[in-house]
Simulated scan of single mutants.
Amino acid sequence: MIEQISRSLTDPSFMVALVVAIAVFVTMFTALPALGADPLKARMKSVALERDELRAKQRARLAAEADRKRRGLREQESVGMRNIVERLDLRRALADEATLAKLKEAGFRGQNPLTKFLFFRLVLPFVFLALAVAYVFFLGGLPQQPPVMKMFVCIVAAYAGFYAPVLYVSNRASKRKASIQRAWPDALDLMLICVESGVSVEAAFRRVAEEIGGQSVELAEEFVLTNAELSFLQERKQAYDNLAARTGLESVKSVTQALTQAERYGTPVAHALRVLSAESRDMRMNEAEKKAAALPPKLTVPMILFFLPVLFAVILGPAGIQVSERGLFPG
Rank of each mutant, 00 (worst) to 15 (best):
T247M: 11
T267M: 07
S8F: 11
S251W: 00
R264V: 13
R82K: 12
G141H: 04
L124D: 08
E65L: 13
V217L: 12
N242D: 12
P309R: 02
E218R: 11
F120Y: 14
G107M: 09
E287M: 05
A258F: 01
V195M: 06
G327F: 03
R176W: 05
L9M: 09
A178K: 14
A34V: 11
M191N: 00
F223R: 01
S277K: 04
A239F: 08
I5R: 11
L230C: 09
L49Y: 02
A183C: 06
A37P: 04
L230V: 05
L114N: 07
A93V: 13
M15N: 08
E86V: 00
P165Q: 04
L192Q: 01
V201Q: 08
G107H: 10
D11V: 01
M191C: 09
L88D: 06
N83V: 12
S324F: 05
L54G: 03
M191G: 06
Q144P: 00
R71I: 02
S216K: 04
V47L: 15
T267S: 08
I5E: 14
V24E: 06
A294D: 15
A60T: 09
E263T: 05
K57A: 14
W184I: 02
L243R: 02
Y265C: 06
I5L: 15
V123Y: 03
A272N: 06
N286F: 08
S197K: 00
Y265F: 15
R326C: 02
A244K: 01
E65I: 09
A157E: 02
L114G: 11
L88K: 07
A244H: 01
V19I: 09
A220W: 07
R68G: 11
N286W: 01
R206P: 01
L142W: 09
F312Y: 02
D186G: 12
L219H: 09
A294F: 04
R274E: 13
Q238K: 13
A63I: 05
